[in-house]
């Protein structure tokens, strides 16, 4: 069982009292010796209260005492997750399709989106492209799905995330 804290090294009450008794005995002894050579001094008895600090070790219950192998079963802290949306099926080709460019105008989109569009236009000359400037920039708004659908997009390319 674990101890709450290690007891500091210090005088125990027993040791303190023993030491005090030795001191007292030494004083008494000196007084006794002194009485041989000189008139017996007046002994004044005085009761002195000495505060004694006592260290108490508190044992705190720890984990079950297991001397042998231990198996812990704990939950995965990432918890459950629900899949409610599935990805749209892929297109067979981009030829003849309408490709929409979306974005939030961040991270150099004014350069990357037009360039991607230009490259794909050369590869798929029959495809139609709608630039990102034709769509709202709040692409995390649920309304964007309906907007994209109404525009006749067969596919979207979204950027840029940094």
């Amino acid at each position: 069982m674990a101890k709450e804290k290690e007891a500091p090294k210090e005088l125990s009450r027993r040791e303190f009292v023993k030491g005090a008794a030795v001191g007292a005995a030494a004083v008494a002894g000196a007084g006794a010796l002194a009485s041989c050579a000189a008139p017996t001094p007046e002994v004044i008895k005085e009761t002195v209260e000495v505060p004694v600090e006592v260290t108490k070790i508190v044992e705190v219950p720890g984990p079950p005492g297991e001397a042998g192998p231990v198996t812990l079963e704990v939950p995965d802290p990432s918890g459950a997750f629900e899949v409610t949306e599935l990805h749209a099926p892929r297109l067979d080709t981009l030829e003849g399709k309408t490709i929409c460019m979306l974005g939030n105008e961040s991270w150099q989109q004014q350069r990357t989106s037009p360039y991607i569009q230009e490259l794909l236009e050369k590869m798929y000359p029959t495809a139609t492209f709608i630039p990102y400037t034709e769509f709202p920039t709040e692409i995390n708004d649920k309304k964007i799905g309906g907007i994209v659908k109404d525009a006749g997009c067969d596919a979207v390319i979204i950027g840029n995330a940094g």
Binding site: P69, V70, L72, E73, D76, A80, F81
Partner: peptide, 13 residues
């Protein structure tokens, strides 16, 4: 709903 299984860990103590 994807629920991960519990995790089991062992040790000599």
């Amino acid at each position: 709903i994807l629920t991960p299984p519990k995790v089991t860990v062992e040790g000599k103590d």
